Amino acid sequence: MRFDHDTLAQRVRFGSGAAAANLAAEVASLGVSRLMVIAAEAERELAARVAAGLPVAHWHHEVAMHVPVGVARRAREQAATHRVDALVSVGGGSTTGLAKAVALTTGLPIVAVPTTYAGSEATNVWGLTENARKTTGVDPRVLPRTIVYDAALMLTLPVELSVASGLNALAHCVDSLWAPRTDPINQALAGEGIRALHTGLPAVATDPGDLDGREHALYGAYLAAVAFASAGSGLHHKICHVLGGMFDLPHAQTHAVVLPHVLAFNAPAAPDARRRIATAFDAESATKGLAQLRTRLHAPKALRDYGMTESGIGPAAEAIVAAAPPGNPTPVTLDNITELLHQAWEGAEPR
């Protein structure tokens, strides 16, 4: 056994019902006095409640999927205008992504308060979209200093979005098992992440108010993101980045649709990964375990349901082949990626 593993330096405060207290404690420990709180309009009231009593210099509510360059520019301008010295993000992956875009050019520290299972808060990966193309990169400045996890904040997250967001987290786990920098440590994290999500998501789907289910899902999503941050972007994420940037598809639902097709594509050539996934699902095989979970969750099935046109499959396949990571278990060709996209677009069973 021989490998190099990087562990990202980050504090995690995990406690249901403790978001406001834990956020206040973090702000005090940073010694900052002019916060910029980033929250989408849908989280405006929640952010006001969580950040009540803190020294907020600016409340910023312009948030968009895939962080368009123009949205990032305006957020950076507001940070400069209000002379903020720290960022607080309250929301899902798009909100965290915007905070990262500001931190990328300013170096401002981020305290992230997630309200979905996106996992962006635990990675040093940033993404920006311009002219229908999403660009991603890695930079230590964008890694939030602290994550404040509170499963109680997710009790009102609709089941449909909880499922899509949770399957996005599951995709982090699966992709981490064959990504370019995969190693035994992040493989172990990914396996435990799959197990926790497999426990939590059905509980949430059955009873959205099940706090124990929410906590399991949130714990699994964090492990998934830590594994992904170490292992890097595998084929699944390259596909979803292309599709999201090119067609402005919803992030979580795109991951949820694409995941079973990538698993079926790679599993035959990745025996160790497929055994680990099957074990985590307590299933006969990796693909059957995922299929059974998706059935229980009534998971999203087809890209065409979210606005992708069939005519976009060809251009997307070409872009994915160009971006595919080296060393993917199954060799990537234009033909097999085109077939994969057709299946995902139609909502067909993975082959």
Score class of each variant (00 low, 15 high):
residue 70 G to Y: 03
residue 18 A to T: 11
residue 314 G to Y: 15
residue 76 R to W: 07
residue 90 V to F: 08
residue 226 V to Y: 09
residue 172 H to A: 10
residue 109 P to G: 02
residue 143 L to W: 07
residue 18 A to L: 04
residue 142 V to M: 06
residue 212 D to T: 11
residue 296 R to Y: 04
residue 10 Q to G: 01
residue 301 K to Q: 15
residue 100 K to T: 04
residue 5 H to D: 06
residue 185 I to Y: 15
residue 90 V to K: 02
residue 88 V to Y: 00
residue 86 A to D: 00
residue 317 A to N: 03
residue 10 Q to T: 00
residue 216 H to C: 06
residue 9 A to K: 11
residue 5 H to C: 12
residue 75 A to C: 06
residue 14 F to E: 01
residue 323 A to D: 14
residue 127 G to L: 08
residue 342 H to T: 10
residue 288 K to E: 14
residue 199 T to I: 13
residue 279 T to S: 14
residue 40 A to K: 08
residue 236 H to P: 11
residue 63 V to C: 05
residue 141 R to T: 06
residue 338 T to E: 14
residue 293 L to I: 05
residue 3 F to M: 04
residue 160 E to A: 13
residue 312 G to D: 00
residue 238 K to N: 13
residue 345 W to F: 01
residue 4 D to P: 09
residue 114 P to I: 03
residue 114 P to R: 03
residue 308 M to C: 05
residue 19 A to N: 03
residue 119 G to V: 04
residue 226 V to R: 10
residue 204 V to Y: 00
residue 125 V to H: 04
residue 38 I to L: 15
residue 35 L to C: 02
residue 86 A to W: 00
residue 202 P to H: 03
residue 133 R to P: 02
residue 222 Y to T: 10
residue 345 W to G: 01
residue 162 S to I: 03
residue 39 A to H: 07
residue 118 A to L: 02
residue 25 A to T: 08
residue 183 D to I: 06
residue 199 T to Q: 15
residue 187 Q to H: 15
residue 164 A to N: 05
residue 149 Y to E: 04
residue 18 A to V: 06
residue 213 G to R: 04
residue 166 G to S: 03
residue 115 T to Q: 02
residue 15 G to F: 01
residue 206 T to Q: 15
residue 151 A to N: 00
residue 8 L to R: 13
residue 73 R to W: 04
residue 118 A to P: 07
residue 163 V to G: 00
residue 81 T to R: 11
residue 206 T to D: 06
residue 111 V to D: 02
residue 307 G to T: 06
residue 61 H to T: 14
residue 171 A to Q: 13
residue 242 V to Q: 07
residue 132 A to Q: 09
residue 32 V to D: 01
residue 192 E to W: 12
residue 229 A to F: 07
residue 172 H to T: 15
residue 303 L to A: 08
residue 76 R to L: 13
residue 114 P to S: 01
residue 165 S to G: 02
residue 110 I to Y: 06
residue 165 S to K: 03
residue 217 A to C: 03
residue 47 A to K: 11
residue 5 H to F: 10
residue 58 H to K: 13
residue 224 A to F: 09
residue 118 A to T: 05
residue 116 T to V: 02
residue 82 H to S: 11
residue 229 A to K: 12
residue 276 R to A: 15
residue 102 V to G: 11
residue 140 P to G: 05
residue 87 L to D: 09
residue 76 R to T: 07
residue 189 L to D: 12
residue 158 P to T: 08
residue 38 I to K: 10
residue 267 A to I: 07
residue 314 G to M: 09
residue 102 V to I: 07
residue 181 R to T: 12
residue 4 D to Q: 10
residue 17 G to I: 01
residue 89 S to N: 05
residue 12 V to W: 13
residue 299 A to D: 00
residue 196 A to F: 15
residue 90 V to D: 02
residue 304 R to V: 05
residue 206 T to M: 04
residue 61 H to I: 00
residue 88 V to R: 09
residue 166 G to H: 00
residue 216 H to E: 09
residue 158 P to C: 05
residue 7 T to P: 08
residue 218 L to N: 04
residue 125 V to Y: 12
residue 294 R to K: 07
residue 224 A to C: 11
residue 63 V to D: 05
residue 86 A to M: 08
residue 296 R to K: 07
residue 303 L to I: 10
residue 238 K to I: 14
residue 344 A to R: 03
residue 222 Y to N: 14
